[in-house]
Every structure is written in structure tokens, then in C-alpha cells.
Amino acid sequence: MNRTAKVWLHNALLALLALVVLAPLLWTALASLLPPGAAMSVRAAPQDQPDAASFTLNNYRQLFSRLSLGRYFLNSVIVATAITVISLGLNSLAGYAFAKLRFRGRDTVFKVLLAALVVPVQAAMLPLFLQLKQLGVINSYWGVIIPSMATIYGIFLVRQYALSIPDSLLDAARVDGAGEWRIYRSVVLPLLTPVLAALGVFTFLTAWNDFMWPLVVLTGNDSYTLPVALAILSGEHVQDVELMMAGSVVTILPVLLLFAVLQRQLIGGIMMGSVKG
């Protein structure tokens, strides 16, 4: 086989795989635009494809008017944004300090944190619920936000990156009379921008998609985030395929768009976290 044929075959295979991987997402988008009852008659054969003229935005209209999806969307935006902003702050402070500041017990504490990575989050959920009940934050945004305000993975990722900041730069700032807080804000933070961008996207996606803890802690209809609302709605509306697919699109589209814009940072960050790990 000559090289041209090889290249063609190889890339045809990749294109086919790409289509298979995207198919469930494409079907979701397509079904969300169909009138009730039409999605499940979509066949693989071309002659069974639905008519483009039958496309409708009715499902979306229903979601926002009758099922108050706008409320859940807003909840998701608030919770995911708050988690991202707060945890970026706390993780970057800690990650930088673990990499660059000297203090007694630093390495021991860091080792304990790394060891704690093997503890599944579910192992802490039951007492955590009681704890947050004591604090009176069950069924509130804070109930979702508080446990995610700092993460071991985030600290670890920032530390890996901060290790490459030259000490001479920090010492020069100290000689100029800058305090540690000032150095962090005006010297370190700008240097950390790439890793914070990666961690920021990663954190937002994780918070937006998170399901189990919000399901546990958000007990009232009004405070649901999108995944919780969707899971509960899908139990009540099993037959409303097109409606549910519109709900899926509303849930997935924001994160897919965010990913499309910041994919380089996100994928770069994940690669960074694994190589030295």
C-alpha cells in the first residue's frame, strides 16, 4: 500500500470514529428540535430522517415556561461561579506556598494531602451532611459551595506549576521591600495565569456537572442545580423524549461552549497534572 492510500485509510478511520463519538451528542441536539413523539422514530436509514421543516423550539419554550428551567440554570451559574472563584483563590495561595515559601511542617502537610487523594469523596458525605445541617446550610447554595472551596488536586496542580517560578525573582521583590502578600498579588499571580486558567475551566466544569452532592444537599425544588433538576424531571417525564433532550442541551451546551473556547488551556492543564504526577 502506498503512503497516500495509507493516509487516506487512516484518516477515514479517524473521521468515522469522530462521527461515532459525536453521534450521541448530535442525536441529543436533533431530538431536542423535534415535535413530541418524533425523536424515537429517527432511523439510521436516510429515508427515515425527519423533515427539517418540522423543527421547532417548542420544547425549549416549555422547559423555561412550564418547568422553570431558567431558575435551575441560574442556580447552576451561581454555584459553579462561586466555587470557581473561591477555590481558585484558596488553591493558588496554598499551591504557591507549598512550592515556594519555607515554613515548618510544610513537606509533612503536603504529603498528608497527597495521601488523602485516595479517599473517595463519598466516604465523607454522610457526616458532612450532618455537619452542614448544624451550620444551617442544607438546601442552600452554600451547602454545595462550602465543601468545594478548596481541593487537593487544585493545590497540587498550582504547586507543580509554581515550582518553576525562579526564587531570584521573589527575592528581588523582597529586597525591594515588598511583603509576602504583595509579592503574591503582583509577582506570583500574573505568572500563574496559565495554570489558573486551566484549573479555572476544570473547576467550573466539575462544579457545573457535579451531581451526587448537590442531589444530597439540595432538598427543595427551588434550589436544584441543572443536573439535579434534570435527573428528577427525567423520572417524571420518561415519555417526553424531545423535552428531556432539550433539557440535556441546555445543560451541556454551556460547558461545551466554554470548552470550545478554552480547550487548549484545559487539555494542557490535564497533561501538566499527569506528567509530573
Binding site: 450521541p24 451528542l25 456537572n209 451531581f211 441543572l226 435527573a231 433532550m245 440535556s248 451541556i252 466554554l258
Partner: peptide, 12 residues
């Protein structure tokens, strides 16, 4: 698929 919401794609 990694960035999609697990609940949403499970329904799909």
C-alpha cells in the same frame, strides 16, 4: 464527551 454533564448524557 468528558466535559459533558453525566446526568444529561445518561438520559440521552
Amino acid at each position: 464527551p468528558v466535559v459533558t454533564t453525566l446526568v444529561a448524557v445518561s438520559i440521552t
